[in-house]
Amino acid sequence: MIVKMRNPNREVEIDRSMAVGDLLTTLDLNREAHLVIVDGQLVPRDMVLSRDSVVEIRPVISGGSL
């Protein structure tokens, strides 16, 4: 899957499917500080993202980048 991240904008590719919660853990991102979005929709932690999904991980902490 393709994972797009913001602040700063960057992309990583992950070549297997995994649940939203595991994706955040794999990327070492704090679950309180990020939302995961697919096709403009918020997706829950237990949703399994397929290998071909395009995913946005959006930081929610204001006051700069983390």
């Binding site: 913001r6 602040n7 006051g63 700069g64």
Partner: peptide
Amino acid sequence: VEECPMAAGNRHLFYK
């Protein structure tokens, strides 16, 4: 979603 460029690295963010 983009942040103010002046904010990067401030202490407030570190506490958050």
